[in-house]
């Protein structure tokens, strides 16, 4: 203790004990057990997310181990016949993956141009008033349940438009109807994330471009678009992963025949479509049907995980643009 201070003494208030009577630190305060407990609880809550991931991995992996004990991995990955319930069962996942690839591709064909167009319009052209009206509508579009989209794909797209109006050579279900409507479903996802990242481009960049004599289109395509590229790519990648994981639209409108789809007017079964459909059949825990569900689920999970990691890397790489 410095002598200077004991001479003057700090400005103590009556309800505080004087420094000299306290043996330990005068800053010890009261013990804050409550605070510690709360911190621990918060940490546990955050850890639940990790438990979820680990849970997913274990939940998918254990039945999959049982599955791959009976079906060789290579036969699963490269086999072209999917017939898990037949007497001469065959577990080649290629037909499911092909159907998934078709619906995803078709969805992107719709969603990328429409989503980007809407995003550019909202970010670069719309007046603030118009944007205030359009964005909530976009959000409502994003909030429509996929089962309703599925109903629309089957009853309107496939039945009314393709069969009744256009007389297309197609049956009760088609990959095309499911894929196109899925594209509409993804438009808001791509539009709103792309719009966010374009709106985040500093106004100074647009002004700089305009001051050089560029018109709006040039400014948009050559300045704003490249600057917002990481967000736009992330939006598309998220769109892909939503298309791959989408279940209800394909379960309703794509059909249940797991065959190699060569033409989008055919019916087909995606990975998610198979899981949804097989789960209806109330399979016994431990049976091969039950394990098959999880093997396909594992493949689906790994594919979306991979897509997502690519997206995260991409965003990281380009984030420091401005």
């Amino acid at each position: 203790m410095t002598t200077a201070v004991s001479a003057g003494g700090p400005a103590t208030t009556p309800d505080r004990p004087t420094p000299h009577t306290e043996p330990a630190s005068r800053f010890a305060g009261r013990p804050r057990y409550g605070e510690l407990v709360i911190r621990l609880l918060l940490r546990i809550a955050a850890a639940v997310t990790v438990v979820t991931t680990v849970g997913i991995l274990i939940a998918l992996a254990i039945p999959s181990i049982g599955f791959f004990a009976e079906v060789p991995v290579l036969e699963f990955l490269f086999g072209t016949r999917w017939a898990p319930r037949f007497a001469d069962a065959s577990f080649g996942v290629v037909p499911l993956v092909t159907a998934t690839a078709w619906t995803t591709l078709l969805a992107l064909l719709v969603a990328v141009p429409l989503g980007l167009g809407a995003a550019i319009f909202l970010a670069e052209y719309a007046s603030p008033r118009l944007r205030k009206v359009l964005k909530p509508i976009l959000e409502i579009l994003a909030g429509i349940p996929t089962v309703v989209y599925g109903f629309f794909a089957l009853q309107f797209m496939q039945t009314t438009v393709f069969r009744d109006w256009a007389n297309l050579p197609t049956g009760a279900f088609s990959v095309l109807a499911a894929g196109l409507v899925m594209g509409v479903m993804i438009v808001p996802t791509i539009a709103s994330i792309s719009e966010d990242s374009m709106s985040a481009v500093p106004q100074a960049m647009r002004q700089g471009s305009a001051a050089l004599g560029a018109n709006r289109m040039q400014t948009t395509l050559r300045v704003v678009f490249p600057a917002a590229l990481s967000g736009i790519v992330a939006a598309m990648v998220l769109g892909v992963s939503r298309a791959v994981g989408e279940t209800m639209i394909v379960a309703i409108a794509a059909g249940n025949q797991a065959r190699l789809v060569a033409n989008p007017l055919e019916a087909g079964q995606t990975m998610t479509g198979f899981i949804a459909n097989a789960a209806l059949g109330d399979s016994r825990v431990g049976s091969i049907e039950y394990d098959t569900l999880f093997a396909v689920g594992l493949l689906l999970f790994l594919i979306t995980l991979l897509i997502n990691f690519i997206s995260i890397r991409f965003v990281r790489r380009f984030r420091e643009a401005y």
Binding site: S25, R26, F27, G29
Partner: peptide
């Protein structure tokens, strides 16, 4: 950093109490 002779970064010190004073 000494407050009235005591190191406010000492191991027994409660940062919250420091900030109150």
């Amino acid at each position: 950093v000494l407050f009235d002779g005591e190191d406010i970064y000492g191991s027994k010190v409660d940062a919250i109490e420091v900030r109150r004073r």
